[in-house]
């Protein structure tokens, strides 16, 4: 498969994730969409490393780090969501707007 196919797939998945971030109401759902975006980026990195960087495979190493950081981030994000839920008994991001005008 040519590299472009993987790249376009990655772009599509990224945009799906972007839509989810922009259009969903629950914080947990937004978090899942962010995971989609991160995975899309990983696909791109790994496919590019496999096709073009066949001596050092830098992209794949970086993909490992991305997965790790994504995991850490999910943990923290969920902690925050739990906290907000405890204070407001909702995870609706519409209602977390204290910083508005």
């Amino acid at each position: 498969m040519p590299l472009e196919a993987f790249q376009v797939l990655s772009a599509a998945l990224f945009c799906i994730g972007l839509y989810g971030v922009l259009a969903r109401r629950s914080a947990v759902l937004i978090l899942m969409s962010i995971e989609l975006m991160l995975n899309a980026v990983n696909i791109n990195l790994i496919a590019a490393a496999a096709h073009m960087d066949q001596t050092a495979f830098t992209g794949q190493i970086i993909a490992i780090f991305v997965i790790t950081v994504a995991a850490a981030e999910v943990g923290l994000a969920l902690a925050i969501i739990l906290r907000i839920f405890r204070n407001r008994s909702t995870v609706n991001v519409d209602e977390v707007d204290l910083m508005k005008w």
Binding site: L18, R24, I30, V93, V96, D97, M99, K100, W101
Partner: peptide, 17 residues
Amino acid sequence: LRYHVTGRMYNYAMGMA
């Protein structure tokens, strides 16, 4: 103009996109 600061993150994310 201040109305654009809605306080909602998805609005800001839209701005970024």
